[in-house]
Amino acid sequence: MAAPWVIEVELVDEDWGAIRRAMDAAGPDVRDAMAWLLERGLDAFVADEAEWKALDGQTTDEAEARKQELKRREAQALLVSMRARTIAAEKVMAELGQTVHELGAELYANRRAMRPLREENAALAARLAVASGAGNGGGPSPGDAATHRGVVGWLRRVLGVSEGPR
């Protein structure tokens, strides 16, 4: 025996109500009313398709009325599927819109937090530079000298200039 093939679908509440009412017609002897209705639907759909083909080319009033009814049935069934699919997509869209809004607010808060921190750090670094300079007699700090050597070396490499005699 094959494993059960279970398919999960979403239906708009109102459409699900109509399907549930139809399932009631299955009676108490039917174990799975949903599978029963699925089979009824499949049988009816296939029979209507065959009838549609048989009516093709017939233009009597009776044939036209019949074709109209077949088109109605198909359109109504497609609507049930499309309603649920559209609502589901719009829900996802709304949820994502909310997420984007929240993430945007978080980004704004981050930016706002960053600016005073950078300014404070710049001010602290400037004070430290002044204070360090005062502490070692006003000359460049060892860090400054290292930075200078690094920049000069990088410029030489970029410009292709070899290091000259010292």
């Binding site: 459409d15 009412r21 009824r40 109209q68």
Partner: peptide, 26 residues
């Protein structure tokens, strides 16, 4: 699944209608 359940439900619960009503609904 959705289309066939709806198709079956329509057949079980909707009584046949005249061509004009069917046309309007369609």
């Amino acid at each position: 699944v959705k289309i066939l359940l709806a198709y079956g439900a329509d057949r079980m619960t909707v009584s046949s209608m005249g061509p004009d009503a069917a046309h309007n609904e369609w």
